[in-house]
Amino acid sequence: MQTEKLIDWLAEDLAVKPPRASRRLLIWLPVAALATGIIFLGLVGIRTDLTSTGAMPTLVKTGLGLVVAIAALMGTRTLLRPEASIARGLAALAAVLLPLSLLLAVDLATWGQEGFLSRMLGKSIISCLTVIPLLAAMPLVTSLMALRAGATSHPASAGALAGLASAGLAIVAYGLYCTEDSTSFVAAWYSLAAVIVAVVGSLAGHLWLRW
């Protein structure tokens, strides 16, 4: 086929507006996360001491989740553009390391090194590592669907960031339920749960985000 003909064909198609990946992402990721979160909290209930002893730890957890989600979402949006470099996309992650190290520092400063391991290991690792990824599943799927309308040059990284954004929002919901309040527990296992979702996202991105 002649290239001239193809150009005519494309011009003929100009009126069909292409989907906007960025808008899709910003709408459907939060919608999916909110729906999942409401169902989850409807089933297991918000922790009962939310307004008393649980207030501060819950604030820490939901805050951490929001920081992760917003930073990763901004990175994902950047990577939707084909010319965006991988470094620009992943730069968002730097914003996550600060609150994480702060959590560990707070733990050590408050309680000292003694008993650090038992505080960190806590009693609900399994629940944390399974429930957070489960809560992140639907948001991850919807964000990958939105990302397919984009044109990333880095499918795996874009998928990983979408996974982190989904995990961040999942952490907000889980943080309202989980009563494991040691900040070192949160820093260690919430992060690992998020990393698990990011790895799944990166594999899915590698497969689905080619264009």
């Binding site: 507006k17 292409p18 989907p19 906007r20 990946a21 939707l80 553009r81 084909p82 010319e83 309308a149 984009g150 044109a151 040059s153 264009w211």
Partner: peptide, 22 residues
């Protein structure tokens, strides 16, 4: 098909070259 991923507040040529490269 991907023209919506070009952000008019950025220059066009780097976007075009990135699509071509990919």
């Amino acid at each position: 098909l991907k023209r919506a991923t070009w952000d008019p507040s950025f220059p066009f040529l780097p976007w075009l070259n990135a699509v071509a490269r990919y």
